[in-house]
Each structure stands twice: as structure tokens, then as C-alpha cells.
Simulated assay, not measured.
Amino acid sequence: MSILNDYSLEMTAKERPELDNAAGRILPGTQIAVAFLPNEDMESRIAAACHVRSLGFEPIPHISARRMRSAAELSDMVERCAQYAGVKRVFLVAGDPVRPDGPFEDTLSMLRTGVFESNGIESVGIAGHPEGHPIMDANRLASFMDRKVDEIGARGMASTLVTQFSFDAQALLDWHFSLRERGISIPVRLGVPGPAGVRRLLRYAAFCGVGATTSVLKKYGISLGKLIGLAGPDRLVSELEQGLIAERSDNLALHFFPFGSLGATADWISTYPHNKGLAA
């Protein structure tokens, strides 16, 4: 079974036209996350979730704890997403602001409101950090993950871990297997970049704190001496397939970050089996 049998994608609210153009090349029922960007308003995010549903895909709105201005705003967003877009899955993050815009410091504080299960949410996604976290050490990160998983389960919902994107297959594999060794068996989606311009990939990597050493980038297919052109995840996905050859289950899949190129990512996914012979 291919690791691409159950992939998911990410988009922003402004990318609805791109989704329309790419829809015919995306598997029906595919999970599509709608990112929570500070320069997009709530109406746009909810409209995007509705648009994803109208095209036959599964919308997963992101919700940023520290960007929610009130409990009422959180309740309104979840209720409307459930009512109008049939949302059953959400993805929760703490968010970037150092100081919260409202009453929520982190994902746990949102979970404890009860707003998700009361609106029929069945699954909650939380972030995984294969390359570490800028303000948490590994032990604290693991403890916080466990607390979130326990809280979600106690409220009758399922958990999914979705990682930040990475250029480093070994980092993703090591993190995944360490998770299983800790006895965490919930579904995992490993984040990989879609095909994009080299400069754009490096810009997002810097912004997201993703490891981008010269050796890792070279293995991925990026040369710092040649920043013009496109780079795709062929080698990364191939290496992940090889490293996960013994594990083919519903609990593991890939999550693609298209970086504004939904169509190019959909094309890449649909043709990837033909590219597996690409030279390493």
C-alpha cells in the first residue's frame, strides 16, 4: 500500500480559486486543512471550510488559541463551521503571539471549554515537532503532548498528530519511531513540502524554524549555490517509504504543505509513482 493512499493538504482562505482548479486532481474525501493566518478574517476562514466541503473534500479548520479574541468568538467559529461546512475535524495550535489576544493561552485552555464535543467534533489534530520546539525542551514537549491527547480522549474525541514540514526524512522517521516506542499509537501525518520554488521553500523554512542545514538541503535536492528553479519532495518521500516499509497502516500518512501551489502539489502526487526511479 502506498504512503500516498491517504494524503492530506493545506490551504489558506485566499486559495479557493486554486482549489477549484486543482479539485479534479485531488482524491475525493481528501482532508484539506484551512490555515489560520493573521491576515485573514473569520468570515474568510469559515467560507473556505464551506468551499472545501462543497467540492467533496473534508475540511479541517485550524484554530489558533492566542489569536482568538474571546470565548464567544471561538464558540461562534466552531458552531458555524460545524453547521455550515459539516466540520467534524479541527486542528488546534497555540499560535505565534507572545501575549494572547484573548482568554486562551494554549490548546488545552480551548479544549477545556467543551465547545468542540458539544458541536459534534469527532477528531482533534495537534502539532508534532520532529525537529524540536523553539521554547520547549523535549521532555516538556512530550509531557504537553500527552496532556492534550488525554484531554481529547477524555472528551470523547480522537487525536491526530500532524507534524510541521521537514526536508529531513531521518528526522521525521526518528521522531515517528520514538513516538511509537513511547506507546503513542494515535494516527500520525508527517509534514512534507509540496513542489515549490527554492527561494520560497527556504523562506518558509526560516519562518517556521525548520532545519535547513546544507547537508539536509543537498539530500533533499536543494543547492544553496543555485536558488533559482523548483524543488520537489521526490527523494524525501522515497526515503520515507523505504524507512516505513514495515509499517503500512491507517495510522500513518503524509500531510502536504503546498505553499501556494495546490495545483502543482496535486500534479506531483498524481504522478509520483512514475518518479520513484529518480536518481538519488
Score class of each variant (00 low, 15 high):
4 L>W: 00
5 N>T: 13
8 S>H: 01
9 L>I: 03
11 M>T: 00
13 A>G: 10
22 A>E: 00
22 A>H: 02
27 L>G: 11
29 G>W: 05
33 A>P: 01
33 A>G: 08
34 V>N: 09
34 V>A: 02
53 R>S: 12
58 E>I: 05
73 E>Q: 12
78 V>C: 07
79 E>H: 15
82 A>S: 15
89 R>V: 07
91 F>Q: 09
96 D>K: 07
97 P>W: 01
104 F>K: 09
104 F>P: 07
107 T>V: 14
112 R>A: 12
115 V>T: 11
118 S>F: 10
121 I>A: 01
122 E>I: 04
123 S>N: 13
124 V>D: 04
124 V>T: 04
128 G>T: 01
128 G>R: 02
133 H>Q: 12
137 D>Y: 03
138 A>K: 15
140 R>K: 15
141 L>C: 01
143 S>A: 15
146 D>E: 13
152 I>G: 04
155 R>E: 05
163 T>K: 10
173 L>Y: 03
174 D>F: 08
177 F>A: 07
188 V>A: 05
191 G>V: 04
197 G>R: 10
203 R>V: 01
204 Y>A: 09
205 A>F: 02
207 F>E: 09
213 T>Y: 08
214 T>D: 14
215 S>L: 13
218 K>T: 15
219 K>M: 06
220 Y>G: 00
221 G>S: 05
222 I>A: 00
224 L>G: 02
227 L>Y: 01
227 L>P: 00
231 A>L: 13
231 A>M: 06
234 D>P: 05
238 S>W: 05
241 E>D: 08
245 I>N: 09
245 I>W: 12
248 R>T: 13
249 S>A: 10
251 N>A: 14
252 L>K: 04
253 A>R: 07
256 F>R: 11
258 P>T: 04
258 P>R: 05
258 P>W: 03
264 A>G: 13
267 D>K: 07
267 D>S: 08
271 T>R: 11
274 H>G: 12
278 L>M: 13
278 L>K: 14
280 A>C: 09
280 A>P: 12
